[in-house]
């Protein structure tokens, strides 16, 4: 299996390292031709304004949008979630709009409000998942066909799936817990 990690800006190296721990071939993607021959794509955390602006170059956003509509698996974390959402409540961002979720950027406040918390994510098993939220977004609403995977104690939606599209507002790539990435690999191979 070969997974691309969008490497325009942000924490792409962390995803690549984690995928290597799962014995998966992982490559950085900066140009459309690098999308060829991949089984899936991860869009990492970073600054969503920066990433969307850089994606607008070289026809990259268009190409990813096209692939996603053909059922290509994409996993977006934090900024990556904003990038593939169909709507962003605040900020001057044009997401590629392939997943039926509406998101809100910097939803918990500024950096001093960034936090860590334990999450219950039933599809990953009973053991709590370490949630690292950094100037994180949240999912305001989900459309048809979207399965909610995780909520905070107050009901805020922070992870979801729609077919082969997977998103979370937090950063599994900053932890040693491989379960979220393994779940994505299972989605790709059709096991889940």
């Amino acid at each position: 299996m070969k997974i691309g990690v969008l490497a325009l800006q942000g924490a792409f190296a962390e995803h690549i390292e984690l995928l290597k721990k799962l014995k998966v071939d992982a490559v950085p993607v900066r140009l459309p031709r690098q999308l060829e021959g991949l089984d899936g794509l991860i869009i990492p955390g970073g600054e969503s304004t920066t990433i969307t602006k850089l994606m607008a170059n070289y026809n990259l956003a268009h190409k990813i949008n096209e692939l996603a509509r053909e059922g290509f698996p994409i996993f977006g974390t934090c900024a990556g979630m904003i990038v593939i959402a169909s709507g962003v409540a605040n900020g001057k961002i044009t997401p590629i709009g392939v997943m039926a979720i509406k998101v809100k950027r910097n939803a918990f406040g500024r950096q001093v409000d960034s936090f860590e918390t334990e999450l219950s994510i039933p599809v990953l098993g009973k053991k709590p998942f370490p949630g690292v939220f950094i100037r994180a977004p949240l999912i305001e609403s989900v459309g048809r066909g979207v399965e909610v995977l995780a909520k905070l104690a107050d009901g805020t939606i922070v992870a979801a799936r729609q077919g082969k599209l997977l998103v979370c507002a937090f950063h599994p790539e900053l932890t040693d817990d491989l379960r979220f990435h393994r779940y994505f690999l299972d989605i790709i191979s059709g096991k889940r």
């Binding site: 325009l8 792409f12 955390g45 970073g46 600054e47 001093v112 960034s114 860590e116 100037r135 950063h171």
Partner: peptide, 20 residues
């Protein structure tokens, strides 16, 4: 829920990587 942890401090810088 914990704020101001070492992980979220270092983590924000990790989100800035590859950027200007």
């Amino acid at each position: 829920m914990q704020t101001g942890t070492w992980k979220v401090k270092v983590g924000l810088a990790q989100m800035l990587k590859g950027g200007v």
